[in-house]
Amino acid sequence: MNNPVLLSEQSDRWLIEQSLAGNNGAWAALIGRYERLIYSIPLRYGMSESQAADIFQDVCLILLERLEQLRDHERMASWLGTTTRRECWRHTNRRDRAGPDDPDAFFEQQPSALEHPEVIVEAWERYTALHQALAKLEARCRTLLKRLYFGYPPPTYVELGEELEMPVGSIGPTRARCLEKLRHEMHGENYRVTS
């Protein structure tokens, strides 16, 4: 019997093979894996949401065109980061018709120091690892951490206690234990945690 197919747990290579074979679910999973990275780069470069949407479409079409060549690519995120940056440059150049011919020169000329795509890719990898680890936590821990740290303003312990039906006094120790579990999920059991 073949191994079970869980799209979100498959390698890029597998998703690319399946996309090439016409599996739209695999293509959707591939897009889902990298969509926040692609869409965020133009936004981080100060472009509008509508420009980011155009660039997102362009990058996805380039990815679709190059699927065969990318089959053996080890670092899809880096490739997408560089490609998205290039598309940001092309988009801006098309609009202004006066920019430099080289994307590196263009980005160096910008008034604010724009992050290099590799820096954004690293931040995105941390973001992804965090969310994958959160997904592995038990529901109670995940809910507690999300409610405590993801929203603004954060709820008070009294509000949280009522919402999660937890004694207020146990929220502090529980959130520390949940953070410890999160760290183990991200780095393994051998990672040291202050005792």
């Binding site: 739209n24 293509w27 959707a28 897009i31 969509e35 926040r36 990275l37 692609i38 869409y39 965020s40 936004l43 981080r44 949401e49 980011a52 949407a53 997102f56 479409q57 996805c60 079409l61 931040a123 995105w124 941390r126 973001y127 965090l130 951490l145 740290y149 993801f150 603004y152």
Partner: peptide
């Protein structure tokens, strides 16, 4: 990273659907 979660915003549904 948790508090800066919106830093990696997902594209709107319509945009994603066109790509798919």
């Amino acid at each position: 990273a948790m508090q800066g979660d919106a830093a990696f915003k997902a594209p709107p549904d319509g945009v994603r659907q066109r790509a798919i």
